[in-house]
Design a binder for these strands. Structure first.
Lengths: 217, 217
DNA sequence: CGATCGGTTGATATGAATCAACGTGCGTGG
DNA sequence: CCACGCACGTTGATTCATATCAACCGATCG
């Protein structure tokens, strides 16, 4: 698949080193563990989540190439969340002290960080609204639209479709419903000619309808 | 009620002007409206929310004395949310440009802002987990505990109770359930001797049990 | 070849929404 | 000063969305 990855300022300007390639399914950060490093995802998909004591997990967001694990980890020395590789990923880290030094020296990085922080918060707020106020169907539609935008910002879209490596269980963990119910709703979308999702690939057949369902406005 | 308000660094160091007192129920910020100012709440309670087209609203968080409307509004010139006064409030604003100038000049303010950002994000993540993975009962317990901590950080607690100006509808809008269901669950808490909530006052009778229900760990 | 994983589908159970009625306190205007 | 309306909370009956439990299928892999 042809892919034009557009690097963020954070990725371009901050001069990262210590590249690592990590197989899918690996947990690359654990809540409450100390880390002297700030990490970016350079390739592949990961997700940030909370593990609850009852065995459930809430996926807080998905990390795409160019994303910091979280803007907050620039200031916080403990991880406040866990991170897991969804696909094979490349990540690279920089000592927090070094990052902060660069931050002070290069206003472009500060701007990029502030912008990342705004985007993160905005996304969290919208997800909060989706989880609190919308039906399962609407939440899934919202998630699809949200991820489509993020994918589109990073790569060329091929054959009217999107590379989309989420399992139904991941969708379930992100929008707070059961994977069984996710299956039913995805089937519904397929039957109604709204979208098809299979085998790591998302094809949207009726965008206006998907937006009608998923848009928060 | 005796109250020792502890000002945050943001409030103390940034030298705010343009104080305004605002009656309860007033909307003090509207999503998508431009604002040249950054605002802090100096007294009273407010809440930040999204208004959905179907008439529902999601309360994103509650604003207590010392809180910025949001750390993101330091960088973003449009409000990404709306804000409403829960009680009578005092707010004060500063031109964004001026705030940014002070930010550059005084590292203490930068630290305070970064810390506010971390706290905000962490709170949003936890709320996400609560909304996605927990029952109505657990969500309400979580909200009570969360607010108790924030109140306790700001003022002396009186008679084993907390000043707590939320209406049941506000709780409903925050945790994503119906106000009648909130009523049932609050009654349940009362019947089970866990907590009493009435008339702007919260009294916790069985903290361990409330924590068992509401804690995310 | 069996085991495991991801997805599908059906039957049933349950938590929460909805609809509705009612109570109580409070402010306002007659 | 009373009467009315209104906001807020409570409670019951019913409905509905989603969870749970269970069986099954196809693909993949050791």
């Amino acid at each position: 698949m042809e892919k034009r990855v557009e690097e963020s300022h954070l990725q371009r300007d901050a001069n990262w080193q210590h590249f690592r390639t990590i197989p899918p399914g690996t947990q690359v950060a654990a809540r409450n563990r100390l880390s002297e490093h700030v990490f970016v995802v350079c390739g592949g998909w990961a997700f940030r989540f909370f593990q609850l004591p009852n065995g459930r997990r809430q996926i807080l967001n998905f990390l795409l190439p160019g994303d910091l694990f979280s803007a907050t980890s620039v200031f916080e020395e403990k991880f406040l969340f866990s991170v897991n590789a969804l696909t094979e990923i490349q990540i690279s880290g920089m000592r927090r002290s070094e990052f902060q030094a660069r931050l002070a020296a290069n206003p472009k990085i500060l701007t990029a960080l502030a912008s990342a922080c705004v985007v993160e918060t905005q996304a969290a707020d919208e997800m909060l609204a989706a989880l609190g106020q919308r039906s399962a169907e609407e939440r899934i539609a919202y998630l699809l639209l949200h991820l489509m935008q993020r994918i589109a910002a990073r790569s060329v879209i091929r054959e009217q479709g999107y590379y989309f490596p989420l399992r139904q269980q991941n969708i379930a963990d992100a929008v707070g419903i059961t994977s069984v119910h996710v299956s039913r709703i995805i089937s519904l979308f397929r039957d109604r000619g709204i979208a098809e999702l299979s085998d790591g690939f998302l094809r949207v057949l009726n965008l206006p309808e998907l937006e009608r369902l998923g848009s928060l406005n």
